[in-house]
Write a protein that binds this DNA or RNA. Structure first.
Length: 403
RNA sequence: GGGGGGAUACCAAAGCGGCCAACUGGGGCAGACUGUAAAUCUGUUGUCUUACGACUUCGCAGGUUCGAAUCCUGCUCCCCCCA
């Protein structure tokens, strides 16, 4: 196996990266790796608490993938043990610990989704419960003597919670230690993480050093902004775009991001080659509309393939721009000659959550049949043979009524 | 160990015996507008009902009262202060 030059590798590695601590050590490691023809061990720990991966997660997974493509060894740690503690990072509450069964289940879901991004063949998968779970209380005591309380409460999240009189459970202090111990155990060369992980990543360096190892490089990626454009993408803010999302939703959601996020999305979550990024920057200025469509297309293509991406674009143009009923709308069949209240049809098809909501939407003009707004809650349809009516509920729900 | 405070709809947070299905903000939904599923503006936001109205909801279980989210008792959980 041969590696690309240090220069070439750095170009890939630094794409979108916020900080490399310290960069010169990374260069040394890369040089040594080339010389010895030995891959670097790249560590990424994931928390199996939230099994739905979104583009925010993909930032870091893609970085790991890039390392794989450069020939390095990707080690994906499922935090089976650490999930039982719960990462305090960015939390203002103590997280409820998970049971081992939940961890196992979530880990499976995680891997299934991560395989869309990683090269599965070349990924070493481990569970930190295998070694952290074996440690004795004495081991933990020794390990924790490496850190001080002062240093722990320096951390933003802890000090904020402390000031606000919010609970900090003692075991939360152990999280960074556990994560750092992973690095010691795995002898990692590089650990990836979001900028919010800096503290945890640095602890790994400390612990490795005190174990006599060459400390790992910490590589921080930015937190991807969510569809609202201000907060980081997160399921709990409901501003996320899932990688499992159906193509039409994926496409549409990407289009809903604010314009000034377009570039960072290209940089962080697409497979567009590095040397095309500058071109894209120009394009955004000239033609934000189409560039954003390109972004939506690229992402849909990455997760669903080219064909699906074309369909999604088509679907968006049809439904959102032209406000038409899409071809793939679900079909509801009725007996010819029967009469039904529109209200009941909508309820039976679960297109709204209650009759009250349906009536409200009717009143507000959100329900239309064959492009005609229906505002009478008692509106009835008498079905004739061979009839096909297009029903639109709100802006995103459609159905075809057939008899 | 001692003292104090709190639990309200998706979230935050008012209400503190009838006018409360419950102020307000966020979020959601809808309409207008737009290159957009963005921004903005407007409306709306327990269930059933065309409507009148009925029913369920304010941590849990009881009680007082013509009437309780509001008062009393017990329980569960959370937080703070002192030690």
């Amino acid at each position: 196996m041969s590696f690309p030059s240090v220069e070439e590798q750095l170009t890939v590695i630094k794409r979108g990266t916020v900080e490399i601590v310290p960069e010169h050590e990374l260069i040394d490691k890369l040089k040594k790796s080339i010389k010895a023809n030995k891959p670097l061990r790249i560590k990424l720990g994931v928390d199996p608490t939230r099994p739905d991966l979104h583009l925010g997660h993909s930032v870091i997974l893609r970085k790991l993938r890039q390392f794989q493509d450069l020939g390095h060894e990707a080690i994906l740690i499922i935090g089976g043990f650490t999930a039982m503690i719960g990462d305090p990072t960015g939390q203002n509450k103590t997280r409820p610990p998970l049971t081992p069964e939940e961890v196992e289940e979530n880990a499976q879901t995680y891997i299934e989704q991560a395989r869309k991004i990683l090269d599965e063949e070349k990924t070493t998968l481990v569970n930190n419960n295998d070694w952290l779970g074996e440690m004795t209380f004495m081991d933990v005591v020794k390990l924790s003597s490496n850190l001080t309380v002062a240093r722990m409460i320096e951390r933003d999240d802890f000090s904020k919670r402390y000031k606000n009189n919010e609970t900090i459970s003692l075991h939360e202090f152990l999280y960074p230690l556990a994560q750092g111990q992973d690095s010691v155990y795995l002898k990692s060369d590089v650990e990836l993480g979001g900028t919010d992980q800096k503290f945890n990543l640095l602890v790994g360096r400390d612990l490795q050093r005190s174990d006599g190892q060459d400390p790992q490089i910490c590589l921080m990626m930015p937190l991807l902004a969510g569809t609202d454009g201000s907060m980081k993408m997160s399921k709990s803010y409901d501003n996320y775009i899932g990688i499992d999302e159906p193509e039409n939703d994926l496409y549409g959601k990407v289009l809903s991001i604010p314009d000034d996020l377009i570039y960072s999305y290209f940089e962080l979550v697409t497979d567009v080659p590095v040397d095309e990024l500058n071109l894209i920057k120009q394009k955004i200025k000239k033609d934000p509309r189409n560039t954003k469509h390109d972004l939506a297309f690229t992402l849909t293509r990455m997760y669903h393939g080219k064909e699906a991406a074309k369909n999604a674009r088509n679907h968006f143009e049809q439904t959102v721009i032209n406000k038409n009923i899409p071809d793939d709308a679900p079909v509801i069949e009725f007996e010819a000659g029967s009469t039904h209240r529109l209200l009941d049809i909508i309820s039976d098809a679960n297109l709204t959550s209650s009759n009250g909501e349906t009536k409200r939407m009717m009143k507000q003009g959100g329900i239309s049949l064959e492009e005609e707004k229906i505002q009478d809650p008692n509106f009835e349809i008498k079905f004739e043979k061979g009839q096909e009516l297009a029903l639109k509920v709100g802006k995103r729900k459609f159905a075809k009524l057939k008899s």
